[in-house]
Simulated assay, not measured.
Amino acid sequence: MGVEQWRWAGQERFAGFCLTFLLNREPAAVAASLGADSLTLMTLAEAERAYPISRPGALLRLGAFDNWVFCFEDRAPIANRTPAILRLSKDTRMLQLSRSGDGMVVVRDVVDGRTMEMFEPGGAVYVDGPLRPRIAALLPAHSRIVAALAVVGDEVGANLDRATLDGRLATALSPLNEPAGRR
């Protein structure tokens, strides 16, 4: 299990983000579930010019690893909202990590709308499962977000480094605004 490639997540620039992995989904279907009409291949720099932070909405950056699609949101995430979780996980498995601006980290494993596991690494456990002890084994040697990403990345076979996130990915801005809430 690699931890080093996930160190970027502990940097200040990524104070808050949501990273969602979905099994056997296409990027366009994920974007549509999150309220975006179309995807354009662009680098992060191009995306930030096309969709400046002053423009409201969630910036969706999507790619794939084998049978898994990922969606990375680092401003105004919506994939971690209850209605989106239900849509995204319908008929599939969803693994998701959210880090709020205040540093709270939440890991979710949802299958067809049913929460199989949900917890804060090193903190509250809402629904216990097999990922939590694997992440706990990496604490406190690594930050909660880096440990969580290393385990979830291992689970889905993803090595999502900064070069990938900064590179050309399917990108869209979603205007969707849904209520927050815990599931």
Rank of each mutant, 00 (worst) to 15 (best):
T43G: 11
L44W: 09
A45T: 08
E46M: 15
E48V: 04
R49F: 08
R49K: 07
A50Y: 04
A50V: 13
A50Q: 14
Y51L: 14
I53H: 11
S54W: 14
P56R: 02
G57Q: 04
G57R: 03
L59C: 05
L59H: 01
R61S: 00
A64M: 10
F65P: 09
D66V: 13
D66N: 15
N67D: 13
W68D: 11
W68E: 06
W68R: 01
F70L: 02
F70N: 01
F70K: 01
C71E: 02
F72K: 00
E73D: 07
D74V: 02
D74Y: 03
D74R: 04
R75M: 00
A76D: 05
A76M: 00
P77R: 08
A79G: 08
A79C: 13
R81W: 04
T82G: 12
P83C: 06
A84R: 04
I85W: 12
R87V: 00
L88Y: 05
K90F: 05
D91I: 00
D91P: 02
R93C: 05
R93N: 04
Q96C: 15
L97C: 06
S98L: 11
S98P: 13
R99E: 10
G101A: 07
D102Q: 15
V105Y: 15
V106K: 02
V107R: 02
D109G: 07
V110R: 09
V111R: 07
V111P: 02
D112N: 07
D112E: 04
D112W: 02
G113R: 12
R114Q: 12
T115P: 01
T115F: 03
M116C: 11
E117Y: 01
E120M: 11
P121W: 03
P121E: 03
G122P: 09
G122K: 10
G122R: 09
G123K: 10
A124G: 09
A124R: 05
A124P: 03
Y126G: 11
V127Y: 01
D128Q: 07
D128I: 14
G129K: 03
P130R: 12
P130E: 15
P133W: 08
R134G: 04
R134F: 03
I135Y: 00
I135M: 00
A136G: 04
A137F: 12
A137V: 15
L138R: 12
L138N: 09
A141N: 14
H142W: 13
H142Q: 15
H142I: 15
S143E: 13
S143Q: 11
R144Q: 14
I145L: 14
